[in-house]
Design a protein around this nucleic acid. Structure first.
Length: 835
RNA sequence: GCCGGUGUGAUGGAAUGGUAGACGUGACGGACUCAAAAUCCGUUGGGCUAAUCCCCCGUGUGGGUUCGAGUCCCACCACCGGCACCA
């Protein structure tokens, strides 16, 4: 009988559709397990092979958890608002809602084709008004708690998307989505005060079971630094607050720098002798794009403010004030004290403008370079009352002195900025706010939610930076909810990240029309036990959703301060590089490729992309080999956390393995017990598979199953052996497992599907053979192997070792100085010549 | 510059300080077949060799610790990722 994967997979998918064995039951008495994957963005291209990797892994985990007796919530949904859909709609003249509907249908078909054990009754779609009603509701709560505000400020503007971007969406000065140049533009935007939560977002990472690189990246991004805020005076009498991490170096301050946008610069302009020079510099600085601003190793530029000076509060000395764009208006106070002796940037600036450099920490040569001490035990010099103290002691001493003088205090600063939350695009959640000339910004009453996105004729973005919705005058003009007078709606929409910031909560209670999620459902399911997703979301979705969850915790919607107990991440799937030098024979061709493609030509595997034509479509793989082979291969491909390379050839190996499993049915003896010969390998494999799945080491779990099957072929097997194999295989290849389970008769006799059978248990005592081959080393080098009885005592082992012909030969004329015996593993003999 | 990570056969990748290369792909040899595919069995790190006997070498490089190092320590090289004029 042949393994007809096509028919088998259809058959079982239909059965699951009917009997719904994957439904999660809120409130059930079994222990709960909430496994979460990042819901996909339903693009027109459909699933690519990057999706099945995390999806299959979590499916395997969830299937195993069910067999272990857990009540499992494994949901799926669609993050369907966003630019690609809108752009596709513009190009093809189809309404985004139609595009979305079609794409979701296609994704659903593909996901079902792969046999995932999602609870399909809980599907969430972020573009559904019943869903985004609650996204809008959360926004209103943020607004009511002072965490949403409208502000005019320079924002990142993507020249291609014609839309503002959050800082998190700008990567190396370009738009993370389309790669176009990002410029700074002065715009009035809705902002979310994520900075209010910066401290908690850092602190609470400690207790979470997140992989380290996620924690590190979030900490990097939030960028906490501790120091002091100090008020310097200007000769005009104005206060100039600055932030420094090194208050100990204040005696080394020889000038100050303000950012070009600093408010005091505007205020002082009439007093300045060189006002023209100053305004010219401001103009240049303002016109720079993010890319230009962050260019490496660029020269320090700046302008001295002539007519105003600063005063160093520790010694009363007057110092010059400059403006320079190396000081950022958005960090700290937008002004710094400059200590050129001990800060590289200040040093470069001082050299360029010929400013004095004072050494205040001993140990370097400040004329040659800034001395930035690596440890804090260096000693203070030229620093008045700090002289002789170590840096470690000088920092608190100075901080204390500043506080006593009333001119400074300890302060923590963050790199994290508030979240720019509005987008000048159509396909997003409308922001439920109204602007009234009398009352200002007024939130829509909750009773009017959802504020439904209206149908418009054209969703083209506009060059003037207004949302397409602004042209919908019928919709825009409304009554003020406060005074009833004429008012206008906000026409910007929410960013892509809004809907995904809380979707995992909606899965817990997806059909609730009274609340975002009921407290009871949330208390039962929350927090998510295991969340797997891409590293690219670490400082986007993952950070945003932690912020929203903390806010929801503060207002009593959820019962834990963190949404996800555990976070893991998968590596990317790479495809064949068509321009790889290894693909050609001659030197000339190789040189030509290197010339044309540079370093890319040297890489055998690269990111899959349409332009390279190396994209693998899961539909094709399933058609050729079946879903179970696809699932198995994507799990076997390599270390889950690392990037892996797709190989059409290697897929066959997974298919071959499933064929071998299937073909075992013909030769299995009709005996429900394990065969004696296979007992040990079976128990070892149960242990290995059980532990490896929990650690996401799917590749080695599958390798162990392959080893076991190889043993079955070598030893013969019983139906009992086979049934254990089926159970262990069922999370990976569920369709094949169910069919084999039925055919081997277990289901017929008990009415239980493989997936409903308890997960096999192993017995340590049965795991080992009665005989063991161990290594014999002489002086640490392997010289022979011998077979010993399991757990033999040292004397017996040495007897066997000495009886070995080769060892005996090596021992001729030698005496044993030392023997090292590792039980059931190895013997190491240290020899020296006999006298 | 700072912070992480990685480096193992032709190839994807395995190895709680204890027989390096599990498992898979590819290649080679054999069985079955008129033949091919599929399947099954075997071989497959390099050198030396008549030999699947010995011996030597071998996990990016150079040192070290240890009876024993892919694994631990020190220094370096290469690649990948994150942050970056953040005071």
């Amino acid at each position: 009988m042949k393994y007809e994967f096509d028919a088998i997979e259809k058959k079982w998918q239909q059965r699951w559709e009917g009997s719904k064995p994957y439904a999660a039951i809120t409130g059930d008495k079994r222990p709960k397990f909430y496994g979460l994957i990042e819901f996909p963005y339903p693009s027109a291209a459909g699933l690519h092979v990057g999706h099945p990797r995390p999806f299959t892994a979590m499916d395997v985990i969830c299937r195993k958890k069910r067999m272990e007796g857990y009540n499992v919530l494994f949901p799926i949904g669609f993050d369907a608002f966003g630019l690609p859909t809108e752009n596709f709609a513009i190009k093809n003249h189809i309404h985004p809602s139609i595009v979305t509907k079609n794409n979701i249908e296609n994704f659903t078909r593909q996901l079902k084709m792969l046999g995932y054990s999602f609870d399909w009754e809980r599907v969430v779609d972020t573009t559904d008004p019943d869903y985004y009603k609650w996204t809008q509701w959360i926004f209103l709560q943020l607004y009511k708690h002072g965490l949403a505000y409208k502000a005019t400020m320079p924002v990142n503007w993507c020249t291609s998307c014609k839309c503002v971007l959050a800082n998190e969406e700008v990567v190396e000065g370009v738009c993370e989505r389309c790669g176009s140049e990002v410029i700074r533009k002065e715009k009035s935007q809705w902002m979310l005060r994520i900075t209010e939560y910066a401290q908690r977002l850092v602190d609470d990472l400690d207790a979470l079971d997140f992989i380290d690189r996620v924690k590190t990246q979030q900490r990097n991004w939030i960028g906490r630094s501790t120091g002091a805020q100090v008020v310097f005076k200007a000769t005009t009498g104005d206060d100039i607050p600055i932030f420094t991490t090194r208050p100990d170096t204040m005696f080394g301050v020889t000038y100050m720098v303000l950012s070009p946008e600093h408010a005091l610069v505007h205020q002082w302009l009439p007093l300045l002798e060189n006002a023209d020079e100053v305004t010219a510099y401001q103009r240049v600085a303002a016109s720079k794009s993010d890319l230009e601003r962050t260019e490496l190793n660029k020269d320090k530029t700046g302008v001295l403010l002539r007519g105003v000076r600063g005063v160093n509060p520790v010694n009363g000395e007057e110092i010059p004030i400059f403006i320079s764009d190396y000081v950022l208006s958005t960090y700290g106070t937008g002004a710094i004290m400059a200590v050129p002796g001990h800060d590289q940037r200040d040093w470069e600036f001082a050299k360029k403008f010929d400013l004095p450099i004072i050494e205040v920490v001993a140990g370097g040569d400040v004329e040659k370079e800034a001395f930035v001490a690596k440890d804090d035990t260096a000693v203070m010099v030229n620093s008045g009352f700090l002289n002789g103290l170590t840096v470690r002691d000088a920092i608190p001493a100075m901080t204390k002195w500043l506080a006593e003088q009333g001119i400074g205090e300890a302060k923590v600063n963050f790199k994290l900025r508030d979240w720019v939350f509005s987008r000048q695009r159509y396909w997003g959640e409308p922001i439920p706010m109204v602007f009234c000339p009398q009352c200002g910004w007024v939130p829509l009453p909750e009773s009017e939610l959802p504020l439904v996105l209206p149908n418009v004729e054209s969703y083209e973005p506009t060059d003037d930076g207004e949302s397409p919705l602004s042209k919908m005058t019928d919709w825009v003009n409304c009554d003020c909810p406060n005074c009833g007078g004429p008012a206008k709606r906000e026409t910007d929409t929410m960013p892509q990240w809004a809907g995904s910031s809380w979707y995992f909560l909606r899965y817990m209670d997806p059909h609730n029309d009274k609340e975002a999620v009921s407290r009871a459902a949330e208390e039962y399911w929350g927090p998510v036990d295991w969340y797997n997703g891409g590293m690219e979301h670490t400082t986007l979705h993952l950070l945003y959703s932690r912020f929203w969850h903390k806010f929801l915790y503060d207002i009593g919607v959820v019962h834990t301060p963190e949404p996800y107990a555990k976070r893991t991440s998968h590596g990317m799937i790479l495809g064949n590089n068509p321009h790889y030098v290894g693909n050609v024979e001659t030197e000339e061709e190789k040189q030509a490729l290197i010339e044309k493609y540079g370093s890319m030509a040297l890489r055998q595997y690269v990111k899959m992309s349409k332009s390279l034509g190396n994209v693998v479509n899961p539909d094709d793989v399933v058609k050729a080999y079946g879903a179970d082979t696809m699932r198995l291969y994507i799990m076997f491909i390599g270390d889950f956390e690392k990037t892996a390379s797709w190989s059409d050839e290697a897929v066959k190996g997974s298919k071959r393995f499933l064929d071998r499993c299937w073909n075992l049915m013909e030769q299995a003896k009709d005996d429900p017990q394990h065969s004696r010969k296979n007992e040990a390998v079976i128990h070892r494999t149960i242990k290995k598979v059980t532990e490896d799945i929990d650690q996401l080491k799917m590749n080695t779990a599958i390798a162990a199953l392959m080893t076991m099957v190889n043993e079955f072929y070598a030893n013969g097997c019983t139906k009992g052996d086979l049934q254990t194999l089926i159970l262990l295989l069922s999370p990976f290849a569920p369709h094949l497992a169910e069919e084999m389970w039925e055919l081997t008769g277990y289901a017929a006799s008990t009415g239980v599907m493989a997936m409903q059978h308890p997960w096999p248990k192993y017995d340590e005592a049965l795991m080992v053979e009665q005989e063991k081959e161990i290594a014999v080393q002489v002086g640490g080098k392997l010289r022979a192997t011998v077979v010993i009885p399991l757990n033999a005592d040292d004397e017996t082992v040495l007897g066997i070792v000495y009886a070995n012909e080769k060892i005996a030969r090596l021992m001729e004329g030698m005496e044993v100085v030392k023997t090292i015996i590792v039980k059931n593993k190895l013997v190491n003999l240290i020899l020296k010549p006999k006298k």
